[in-house]
Design a binder for these strands. Structure first.
Lengths: 352, 352
DNA sequence: TTGAAAGCGCTAACAG
DNA sequence: CTGTTAGCGCTTTCAA
């Protein structure tokens, strides 16, 4: 590797600036114990020599890496992309670099992955939608390693996390559907291992209760947030003798798939059946009819996650709990007032 | 740092296995000079002790960082996400880490950014859709720094790059529209500073020529790949006395926006007007009507970019040129055969 | 086939 | 305020 040849190290800088390399190290780390004049001279030399501190060496020696790790399940839906955008913005402003890891990539040794990172590769970790966070959380809390969870509903542990008001969002959305006149609402759940999915389901149920609408088990389809579930779930509903007049999916991806199913059955949205999503991913506004949905402030969640991490970095002993950002219903074209006919003669509509 | 306490190192493994730590290192690196029996014993010990090699130490000692940098303009459209997915897969398999940089983040000092990375932060760089690559390419080629461009049509320089057959894709797509009977086709270009955009335009023109269809300047709208351009461009076309019967947008995002414009005018897709996109981003198949488009193998482009980078890393002197992956037309619902009526009485259709 | 020794570039005490 | 001295955990010669 001839790289070694032309790489400038703190030793080079020290020699050039006429100081010991220890002093150079201090300058790099913004140590106060450096005469301003000396510091300036060193900085100037670094600039002139085009010096860049070696990451691995720094972390090996036990210092800061100025890098934070981001663990995401994948980059598929744009959902994650929004969150990353927020994180990225904050990190950039703060002068941190971003190391991206998709857990998909190391599915088997996920935990080992984390423990590796925890060993100094990065200064902190942001875990987006962690699948089985209890594995990590143990290690990290124990080692007092800075981390923040994004969009994960605590499994009981009490740790820094950013989420949104899933329960309230689902509650409000359901209420809205009821106000439109819908009484038979089919609900497609997310992956119930995730707290967020459970909360959405509970919000839905609570709203029915509040409105004194009976909860029919047949009108709840258990999905996993995956596209196919939206499709299958919707078909299940539509094949009932008395199908629902509205379908509320636990995320936009499933809602979109549900729309497909509805259309295949020859029904119109929203005239014959209303569709409600959750998340407000970028596509939601682009499709036709555009999707009425519960908006999670994804980008903002990312930003705040980063901010919280910075705060932990600064005050390790400060207590950080879960932060919930408000969700918001975004009215679009996929929902509409229930029509009388629709209520009474579902079959007529079915084959209009 | 009490981390030190419970960390397992090669020294620990060596002690446990009764060998020198040099031997353990050899095992880690799959060095042939280890007696199978010894290797097995060491491996067993590593497993038992839950040993994980320290990345930073390895790279510090080896002069490599085992990290590659990825520079992307943003994470907005899912377009980039697909490419990253491909890159990420390969990197993971090869044991590399991914450092993600969005140029948006440091718009002003883009070039400085790169030169920073080039100095040892990463072993190589993948630049996706670089905006003004000539700035970097100079530095990098000069320093013989490993890099690969993705989806950038050379600005004359001869360097490792992955792209797709933009010209051919546009040519074929146009031909297809012509075969459907369309003779008046509106074309919305991409940002013509990008070679890919130019190639698509040229492919379109060539197809018209081949089919002896006159090229009307009014039927070419100069866009920038941004959503709004699709909308504006389509409106421009639709307001003509004799509007086109098909619109071919240089990317899917613009095509989707064009669909909106078309619908706002009260026209149906594809009955009244056909829409063709380019890229095949994930959304293309999700919208209704689903979008007929020219597929770029984005994920594969990412994979190959990584592979090429690895090859450069291994054989720095090997010559690497641009690789073009084939595009492919994906037939969906947004295009259809031209109807006689549509051809002759555009106004009638306009207000059906 | 294995062991020993010399760093990789930097941080973090510890002296002065 | 600054220099010196140990390592951090591993790869790589160089001997044996």
């Amino acid at each position: 590797m001839n790289k070694r040849r032309d790489r400038v190290t703190i030793v080079d800088v020290a020699a050039e600036a006429g100081v010991s390399f220890g002093t150079v190290s201090r300058v790099i780390n913004n140590d106060v114990h450096v005469k301003p004049q000396t510091r300036e001279r060193v900085l100037e030399t670094m600039r002139r020599l085009n010096f860049v501190a070696n990451r691995q060496a720094r972390s090996l020696a036990g210092g800061r890496t100025n890098t934070i790790g981001l663990l995401v399940p994948d980059l598929g839906t744009g959902y994650i992309g929004e969150i990353i955008r927020g994180i990225d913005t904050e990190l950039g402003d703060a002068g941190y670099d971003l190391m991206l890891y998709t857990t998909h990539r190391a599915a088997t040794k996920e935990a080992g992955y984390v423990s590796n990172l925890v060993q100094g590769m990065v200064d902190g970790l942001i875990l987006v939608l962690p699948r089985n966070p209890s594995d990590y959380i143990g290690i990290m809390t124990q080692r007092k390693f800075p981390f923040v969870l994004v969009d994960h509903q605590g499994t009981g542990e009490d740790c820094p996390a950013i989420g949104s008001t899933n329960w309230q969002g689902a509650f409000n959305a359901t209420n809205y559907l009821v106000k439109l006149g819908h009484k038979r609402i089919g609900f497609i759940t997310g992956w119930l291992d995730l707290g967020a999915a459970v909360d959405r389901l509970e919000g839905f149920k609570a709203a029915l209760r509040t409105n004194k609408i009976p909860l029919l088990p047949d009108l709840i389809y258990e999905g996993t947030f995956a596209q196919l579930d939206g499709y299958t779930g919707a078909l299940r509903f539509l094949d009932m003798k008395k199908p629902p007049t509205a379908i509320f999916a636990s995320n936009d991806v499933m809602a979109m798939a549900a729309m497909d199913a509805v259309r295949e059955k020859g029904l119109r949205i929203p005239e014959d059946i209303s569709i409600m999503g959750f998340d407000d991913i970028p596509q939601a506004s682009l499709m036709r009819p555009s999707l009425t949905t519960v908006r999670q402030p994804l980008e903002q969640m990312g930003r705040i996650a980063a901010q919280v991490l910075f705060d932990i970095l600064k005050n390790p002993d400060h207590k950080h709990n879960r932060i919930e950002l408000p969700t918001e219903i975004i009215l679009r074209e996929s929902t509409a007032t229930l029509r009388k006919l629709q209520e009474e003669e579902p079959d007529l509509i079915r084959f209009h």
